[in-house]
Design a binder for these strands. Structure first.
Length: 197
DNA sequence: CGGAAGATTTCT
DNA sequence: GAAATCTTCCGA
């Protein structure tokens, strides 16, 4: 299995979001290894995107990592109770990021079920907060190098076909005005593991 | 320094 | 449909 290299992340967030569909997210912890196929992503285009945390070049301790080069993990706490995982993309000083919204679990499923305290496979990773809990991703993973060993992505045995990737408007960003209609969410066609809505 | 809102999940 | 719950941002 081939690990995805740094240059994969060095382009804009929308293209990377599309390319990430069908790739495999790998997370290693003391408890064991967990893997999932990425079936849903959203691209956030930094300074030109009203829905992005980094809109208008807004720098803060939270968004700081987005200003580095691509291939790092951007983790943040939302609504005081859930973590979301993003992958930073593009070159230094361009704060693009891709939100991972849903996974199809393929390895370490017992570990994920235990962490989530449920048994229904479809509900294990079908949402940003859910998949983070299932894969033990929290603020300790903030800024982690995705070319490292604990948290990284790899290519699947079979590449996803272009026609099986669907673009749709993004989710839960009604506050972003005109940006909320941009088709920057990508999903794997007919996947049973998408976040609903 | 205080208030308000959020890239969500879960239960009623 | 609403609560849970806390970090971050913005205005005073």
């Amino acid at each position: 299995m081939r690990k995805i290299q740094r240059d994969f992340y060095m382009q804009d967030a929308v293209n990377t979001a599309k390319n990430l569909i069908g790739k495999i997210l790998v997370r290693k912890t003391k408890e064991g290894i967990t893997k999932g196929i990425i079936v849903e992503t959203e691209g956030y285009m930094g300074e030109t995107d009203k829905a992005a945390h980094s809109y208008k070049a807004l720098k803060s301790p939270r968004t700081y990592i987005q200003y580095g080069e691509g291939g790092y993990a951007y983790i943040y706490l939302i609504y005081g109770m859930h973590y979301c995982m993003n992958i930073v993309t593009n070159k230094k000083d361009i704060p693009h990021a891709v939100l991972i919204r849903a996974l199809e679990p393929i390895e370490g499923i017992d570990i994920m079920k235990k962490r989530r305290n449920i048994s229904n496979l479809k509900n294990l990773c079908n949402g940003p907060g859910k998949l983070c809990k299932a894969m033990a991703i929290d603020k300790g993973c903030y800024g982690m190098d995705l070319c490292g060993e604990e948290l990284y992505l790899e290519y699947p045995d079979q590449e996803i076909k272009e026609k099986d990737i669907i673009a749709t408007p993004r989710i839960n960003i009604d506050y972003a005005q005109e940006a909320k209609d941009f088709p920057w969410r990508f999903v794997l066609k007919d996947s049973k593991y998408l976040s609903v809505k």
